[in-house]
Design a protein around this nucleic acid. Sequence first.
DNA 1: TGGGGGCTTTGACAAAGTCCAAATCTGGAT
DNA 2: ATCCAGATTTGGACTTTGTCAAAGCCCCCA
Lengths: 149, 149
Amino acid sequence: MVDAADTLRKHGLPVTAQRVAILSAVHHHPHATADEVAEQVRSKLGSISRQSVYNALNVLTEHGIIRRIQPADSPARYEDRVGDNHHHLVCRSCGRTEDVCCATGHTPCLNASEEHGFAIDEAEVIYWGLCPSCRGGGHASRPHRHSHS
Amino acid sequence: MVDAADTLRKHGLPVTAQRVAILSAVHHHPHATADEVAEQVRSKLGSISRQSVYNALNVLTEHGIIRRIQPADSPARYEDRVGDNHHHLVCRSCGRTEDVCCATGHTPCLNASEEHGFAIDEAEVIYWGLCPSCRGGGHASRPHRHSHS
DNA sequence: TGGGGGCTTTGACAAAGTCCAAATCTGGAT
DNA sequence: ATCCAGATTTGGACTTTGTCAAAGCCCCCA
Ligand SMILES: [Mn+2]
Ligand SMILES: [Mn+2]
Ligand SMILES: [Zn+2]
Ligand SMILES: [Zn+2]
């Protein structure tokens, strides 16, 4: 529960209002996109440039303070929860994203059956499906991204 | 081994020179991007519009004739090999993509530890690492995408 | 008080796709 | 072999998600 400014200082990063607001936004809105973060920050600071949002999200990611996930057909999403090797469950219809603790303990399947000589450092897992509201009743409550004519 | 035109007819799709060329290109260049497919097709047909490449790749994908994979920081890639639940090993540096048979048999980890009420239909796994040429010697042989200053 | 270095802002630019309307082609039926 | 309705292909504009680069700000320090 350390405060955002402290986290920045701890990593030797200059503390700015924008960074503090961005880091807090990510903390309070797990798996938010850059746009969603920008909106949150604007409601706190009044305004912020798009570039500053990307700058901060990038620098925070590079320092391991936050993590970036990039599911297919979605802009990148960011989260606070790092270093615990968890995975994600994503709704094909509305994009809702939930955390899933790694089923097989730490670094799941980190040994692929055939490694082709690669030096593997991460096994990324994404579970795809339909969330309760998107599959129930046939009437979804949020905008859909795939139509399946 | 069936021929591209037959595959199209088998699925009730009108056979066009573009589709045949695109399906063949995907068959002979596994994990190719739309652009790479377009280049291959141009070398056979002389020319093809960007939109036709996307149209065909989309319709082929919807019919399950090919599969689309979308690793982070890469345009979508397409492949012939469908219905065998295999995964991918991607080089963080050059994007080289290799097939990996599912380590845990069929539909690996298709049961996430917490399902959050979702109806899960797929567990996508991507192994990230460095391919032999990108990690060896320090001098890569193909264009890198990440710089890690 | 005068520099510097790092941030932030602006605005241009790029990559990967989609949308649309017009022109062309396919497949099935004469 | 010929026709036609419906599907496909095209070219070009447009969208989304980000990055690049130059200029302006800010704050710390001598
Ligand atoms: Mn998460
Ligand atoms: Mn494959
Ligand atoms: Zn949903
Ligand atoms: Zn490589």
